[in-house]
């Protein structure tokens, strides 16, 4: 259900789920138990957590190559997610997609995406579908600062604003598009200023403050649901890890990384919850411990999955046609 207010403990738990899921992934990779590549969002957990908390059942998201957090915050099953990264048949994509393609379409997660700005046009299309079908669904489009340099992003915002579609674009500005500094790349103080070019609201929020993210997205989602059209939100955050496993961090300083690590969104929120007497330290510790157990179970679920088969893969390239060819007199 859409929340008037953020469920604080839920939000705290979700951030830990993302953090510990990704730490487990990193560990499995380091031990040679996971192959391929992955893009970790450690340090950015407040954005997907706060944003998805503003959605209700049936709302959609599109995600990115750095998408574990979006999927988890949207409610993805940790076991099926881990199984997918472990390339097993019981994973979300039956081992065909891996880290960059986790989707749970039945619950509105239209998928992570390996192409920068692959998601914004798809999100606008889902929003058009919502509008045409007359539902009150909203699509939330996660993308990075790098996507703002893509033509696809501009086309999606152009069309979404022209048709006043129920879509919210949320930019996780983690300061770098791989190694390109967003400050260097974009000659505006805040990326949200670009919203003016589309005649839609634009705002910049502290992406490491889960409540600030929730409030801004909640307002934007309500606006979209009421027919008020799209909003562009820039959430300022930082990825602690490299872009991917090949990153030598040559484009940023140790000091910068340390400075942002001091603004850990999870630790910051724990301090808020303690200050407010929402929870005791023991209760907060218990949340993290419960999540640790969930992650262990997820890894177990994944490692116990079967390897995918070539036969199923070949049968999975096309969706089966409902038209029986023989019924039409076609050759078998």
């Amino acid at each position: 259900m859409a929340a008037e207010q953020l469920d604080e403990i839920d939000a705290y738990r979700t951030m830990w789920r993302i953090r510990l899921f990704e730490e487990a992934v990193e560990d499995l990779y380091g031990r040679g138990m996971m192959h391929g590549t992955m893009h970790l969002s450690i340090g950015q957990e407040a954005v997907p957590t706060g944003a998805c908390a503003a959605l209700k059942e049936g709302d959609q998201i599109t995600s990115t190559h750095r998408g574990h957090g979006h999927c988890i915050a949207k409610g993805a099953d940790l076991g099926r997610s881990m199984a997918e990264l472990l390339a097993r048949d019981n994973g979300y994509c039956r081992g065909r997609g891996g880290s960059m393609h986790i989707a749970d379409v039945a619950t509105g997660n239209l998928g992570a995406n390996g192409i920068v700005a692959g998601g914004p046009p798809i999100a606008a299309g889902a929003a058009l579908s919502n509008q045409l079908r007359g539902t009150d669904q909203v699509c939330l489009c996660f993308h990075g600062d790098g996507a703002v340099g893509e033509g696809a992003w501009h086309e999606a915002l152009t069309l979404a604003s022209m048709w006043q579609l129920p879509v919210v674009f949320i930019c996780e500005n983690n300061k770098y598009g791989m190694s390109m500094s967003s400050e260097k790349a974009f000659k505006v103080e805040h990326l949200s200023e670009k919203a003016a070019a589309y005649g839609i609201p634009g705002l910049t929020v502290d992406g490491n403050d889960v409540e600030a993210v929730f409030e801004s997205v909640n307002t934007a989602v309500e606006r979209a649901r009421a027919g008020g059209g799209p909003t562009f939100i820039e959430a300022l955050t930082y990825r602690w890890r490299g872009h991917s496993k090949s990153d030598k961090n040559l484009y940023r300083t140790r000091e910068e990384i340390a400075q942002w690590r001091a603004h850990d969104p999870i630790a910051a929120y724990a301090a808020v919850l303690l200050e407010r007497d929402t929870a005791t330290q023991e209760e907060l510790n218990a949340v993290a411990d419960e999540v640790r157990t969930e992650i262990r179970d997820a890894v177990r679920f994944g490692t116990q999955g079967d390897e995918p088969t070539v036969e199923a893969m070949l049968a999975g390239v096309y969706a089966p046609s409902p038209v029986d060819a023989r019924e039409l007199g076609a050759r078998a």
Partner: peptide, 20 residues
């Protein structure tokens, strides 16, 4: 639509994924 081929094909993908 606007002159946005990438955008409109992508919107077709999004609409097709969601029941249209």
């Amino acid at each position: 639509t606007t002159i946005s081929e990438l955008g409109i094909v992508g919107m077709g993908v999004g609409a097709a994924l969601t029941g249209m």
